[in-house]
Design a binder for these strands. Structure first.
Lengths: 353, 353
DNA sequence: ATTAGCACTTTCTTGAGATGAGTGCTAACG
DNA sequence: CGTTAGCACTCATCTCAAGAAAGTGCTAAT
């Protein structure tokens, strides 16, 4: 035998073997050899036969051998095939479903921040991996309300509340020592003008109106626009919640200090992780980035399982789990999927309208 | 040699040796033996003499031997003596001073949250240990402003701004579907009534007024008080910033999985850590909790270096660093001390008044 | 009082088998 | 012709013994 018919297609037997290897490796995180596998598979092949198949699979890039003897382990390519066509996700046990559903109870009374924080915690607890949740992008959120609170002679605290329930605040300098009443007038004006517009839109409109109405005589309006510009200015500080970094250490698969080191480095730069998560915003449902599929070098040894959460109108943010490529996909995928759904639901229910 | 005069007092020679041992262990984290030490000490003793002294120190509980041979290491008691009377803190290098002083620049424009977050980051970066910062207790903070923003038929978002610059928000249910105007009246009333009172005080006053004025006829006032009660209700979610958990892993001293495990467990329960930090609120200056001096079991192998930060009137919160008992005290202590000072300064400057 | 010397511990390192699991190849089998 | 048994070979890991390093306690000499 030997020469495979061009290495393209994988017949049923190969699939069985590959699936067996992945299953076994996911369970034990130990390289699996022909003899062991021969015993585990339900349909019996002799170790020799399996060796041949394995040899073919290696050639096709689905398996690799850490040492020339000592069994083989799946490559990222194998995991990709595995999740795409070798297995279907498990039914989520009721106990877990109801655990996640706890979120709904919070939904109605807690601010979004708390909701997201709890999501992170629950997900980290269930998966025993690192869990990430990005806060709704303020960029695309609609303005619910803006409020100015004077804090000293020339400083005023701006509070932005978005429709998605996020409260942002920052301090801006004012050109003069305005009284609080003045700010009340301004905020009334801005609220009236811009409610239900997205922050991005608002910024654009403000810029436009500044250009158009350069010669505006209404002092108050001019002042309002100027303050508004500062208030709505992009602030980089997008938020993210992270939990369970330490699960990784407890995880046997991550004892190799090297990989952990990489991840640690990654976690120190939240922004980097945010970028990765943002990439998933495009698609529906659960997304997988297996090993090398990750754009970030530091995640090359991990799989990122991500899904978006949303309200009726928009994608708001992303939830994600980072674990070893040899994670239990059949379990993790439905967990992430369901959590995203519940979170979407909870956040929609409390939507400010 | 041999029988020490009652084991109470430590003569100068013993101090030298003990200091040498602690210094050496801090630097190399390896048990130090008589021969090595004999070479390192500036005043020369023979290894044998040092052995005798060491033997006495062991008997007095300042040293212990991990193995019957292989050198000795300091006990927590030794570190305590060391920091109390064997060394004085280093002068803080200018480069580090100015690094910390970066905080002041932020101080005037950033909200407190950002300020604290940066403090945590800087301190973690400088010490390479875990760094903790508690947010000002809302309990004792004075009210700057309260604001209600209606978010749905029977829900209203409460925003509390304290004098110390912390913005808190939560959602409360309203008994009826009040219009926003109504809330504006209420918040005007509450602001007028309670500005510059501490949240704790306010709570008490509200309770009192509810008891006294049970038969109050003014509907509006009654409503205001009722909403006020909900708005000012204690919410447990005290905040804390933590950074540098991963520094510990990189740290050679913490390779022993056991200790790390303990710490990880500790870090998972932020509330526990908060409690520990709160204990330091009593005292001025830098506080040390060395090994067993820590109340929490999980910190038994670590030292907590903590200091308060404050504005002119009150202690606001605590900053802390957790590292191995064999940390470089001469360096860490002034770093924490200086950081607390700078933070106090920065937070006072931006104080809302 | 201090120090040199010595016998004794204990850890760490090193290298030599032995073991075990796995592989590739060849030849036999149905 | 696909499948399997057999065999020689390869590594990783374990164990064990020997030896080096570093340290200790004790005794005797200075």
């Amino acid at each position: 035998m030997g020469t495979r018919k061009q290495g393209q297609d994988i017949d049923e037997r190969m699939q069985m073997v590959l699936r067996g290897i992945v299953d076994s490796y996911i369970e034990n995180s130990e390289p699996v050899g022909s003899r062991t596998l021969s015993k585990q598979l339900e349909v019996q092949f002799s170790p020799a036969t399996i060796r041949n198949i394995m040899s073919d699979l290696s050639e096709m890039g689905y398996l690799m051998q850490p040492h020339t003897s000592g069994g083989r382990i799946p490559t990222d390519k194998a995991y990709r095939l595995y999740v795409d066509s070798l297995v279907v996700a498990n039914q989520l046990p009721n106990s877990i479903q109801s655990h996640i559903a706890e979120l709904s109870k919070l939904g109605t009374t807690a601010p979004v921040e708390v909701l997201l924080q709890n999501t992170t915690r629950i997900l980290a607890g269930l998966t025993k991996f690192v869990c990430l949740v990005t806060a709704p992008k303020t960029e695309v959120s609609l303005l619910q309300r803006i409020e100015f609170i004077k804090v000293s002679a020339r400083k005023v605290l701006v509070i932005l509340v978005t429709k998605s329930g996020v409260v942002r605040n920052k301090i801006i300098d004012t050109p003069e020592d305005f009284p609080q009443d003045f700010f009340n007038t301004i905020s009334a004006f801005l609220n009236d003008q811009f409610q239900n517009r997205s922050l991005q839109q608002i910024r654009e409109e403000i810029l436009r109106s500044m250009v158009e109405d350069k010669e505006r005589y209404d002092q108050l309006l001019a002042q309002a626009v100027r303050l508004g510009k500062k208030a709505f200015e992009l602030d980089e500080r997008e938020e993210m919640y992270m939990e369970g970094q330490f699960n990784l250490l407890k995880n046997e698969r991550f004892q190799s200090t090297e990989v952990v080191q990489h991840l640690m480095d990654a976690f120190e730069h939240k922004s980097m992780i945010m970028d990765v998560l943002d990439h998933t915003v495009r698609a529906e449902g659960v997304q997988l980035y297996i090993g090398v599929e990750n754009e970030s070098e530091n995640l090359r040894d991990c799989t990122l399982v991500a899904a978006n959460y949303r309200n009726e109108n928009n994608v708001l943010g992303t939830i994600g789990v980072i674990g070893p490529t040899s994670m239990n996909y059949q379990h993790i995928i439905p967990v992430v999927d369901y959590t995203a759904k519940i979170l979407s639901q909870a956040i929609s229910e409390q939507a400010y309208d």
